[in-house]
Amino acid sequence: MAPAIKVLFLCTHNACRSILAEAIGRDLVAKQALTTIDQWQFASAGSEPAGVVHPQTLLQLAHRGYVTEGLCSKSWDMMADFTPDLVITVCDNAAGETCPLWLGQTLKLHWGLPDPTSIDAPDIDEQFSYVIETLENRIKALISLPLSAGIEAQKASLQSIASQFPLIQR
């Protein structure tokens, strides 16, 4: 079996969007009948981690049946041993930051998403729904790519996922 493809989701504070992506990625792979969990590994980190996951993030994930156990806000410095094959930034601030040297020539993508925790309380559920549904679609597309030839061979397809699945809004 080919080694697992490791995906690292980055967001400045690693308290919401990157955490959502990590949890959704893990869960979708675990539920996918054609893929084993050994083929994909998902993690998240931040350049300036908040130190805690935003409580609404955990509530929204749990409400939708996602596993929240083990999710924590952490620095990208703690992920040096993870050695990702793919880095996906999910906030515009993180996309503009200089990544740590240990990321080297790792393929980097940007899936910019709004921060649902910055919305006023009456709209927070709706904003979380948009972001979660968008991540679900993008991650489903990601894990459905035929990557047996390697991640570099699918570079164009990987880069087009965000434009194929724009932010879902009702």
Rank of each mutant, 00 (worst) to 15 (best):
H63R: 09
K108Y: 04
E126C: 07
V52W: 06
Y66A: 00
K108M: 15
M78N: 11
W102L: 10
W102D: 13
D115E: 05
A45D: 03
L109K: 08
T89Q: 00
D81S: 15
E48Q: 15
Y66K: 03
Y66I: 03
T89K: 01
D115Q: 00
A94K: 02
I124N: 06
L109W: 07
V67N: 13
D123I: 02
S47M: 13
W102I: 04
V53L: 03
V67I: 06
W111D: 12
S47F: 15
Q56K: 13
C72A: 12
I124Q: 15
P100M: 04
P100A: 11
G104H: 07
P116W: 02
C91I: 07
V67F: 01
I124F: 01
L103G: 11
L59N: 06
V67G: 03
H63P: 01
L103D: 07
D85R: 05
S75R: 05
A94N: 06
C91P: 10
D123H: 14
V87A: 03
E126D: 10
A94L: 08
L107K: 06
S118G: 11
M79A: 14
G46H: 01
L113F: 08
C72D: 09
T106V: 12
L107Y: 01
H110E: 10
F82M: 10
M78L: 14
V53H: 05
K74L: 06
D115A: 09
N93R: 11
P116N: 02
K108H: 15
G112I: 00
L86V: 12
Q56I: 00
M79T: 13
L107S: 09
I88N: 04
E97W: 06
L103N: 06
P116A: 03
L109S: 10
V90F: 01
H54Q: 00
V53Q: 09
A94H: 04
T68Y: 04
Q56N: 12
L107R: 10
E48L: 14
M78P: 00
E97M: 14
T117S: 12
D123A: 14
H54D: 12
L59Y: 03
T68W: 05
I88H: 01
L58H: 07
H110S: 14
M79Y: 09
G46L: 01
T83N: 13
I124P: 04
D81I: 03
G96R: 13
E97S: 08
T106N: 13
P114H: 07
T98Q: 15
M78C: 02
P49N: 11
P114L: 04
P84A: 05
G104E: 13
C99K: 14
L61C: 12
W111N: 07
G46M: 00
K108I: 10
P100R: 08
G112L: 00
L61S: 11
V90L: 06
P116V: 01
